[in-house]
């Protein structure tokens, strides 16, 4: 799918992270949720209740729809900064 977002300053140096097992180049130091959206990631997780897809809604740490796991710990992607080697995956289950 064509990314729904455009980066206004695409010249920032990128680092490699893993998203759901696949390598992804994201701007170093960027907001993780924003960077994933700009990279065309449309769904961040499925809900534990019905399996419905979710993606960032508030970007301010209030809705918890951007939940991902980073090295196994559930985090809000909108409150995390991109750095090289992050191992990020959609949050699953209700252990958030």
């Amino acid at each position: 799918m064509k990314p729904a977002f455009r980066n206004l300053s695409p010249e920032a140096p990128c680092v490699e992270i893993l998203w759901d097992g696949a390598p992804l180049q994201l701007p170093n130091g960027a907001n993780l949720a924003g960077a994933l959206l700009a990279a065309g990631i449309g769904t961040f997780r499925k809900t534990p209740v019905s399996g419905a897809p979710r993606a960032p809604y508030c970007m301010m740490g209030s809705c918890y729809d951007c939940l991902v796991t980073i090295a196994g710990v559930t985090r809000q992607a909108c409150q995390v900064t991109v750095s090289a080697g992050l191992v990020v995956a959609p949050a699953g289950g209700s252990d958030a």
């Binding site: 064509k2 977002f5 455009r6 206004l8 300053s9 960027a30 907001n31 960077a35 700009a38």
Partner: peptide, 9 residues
């Protein structure tokens, strides 16, 4: 826009 410099298409 403010923190990431990205905008929706």
């Amino acid at each position: 826009l403010k923190a990431s410099g990205i905008l929706p298409e």
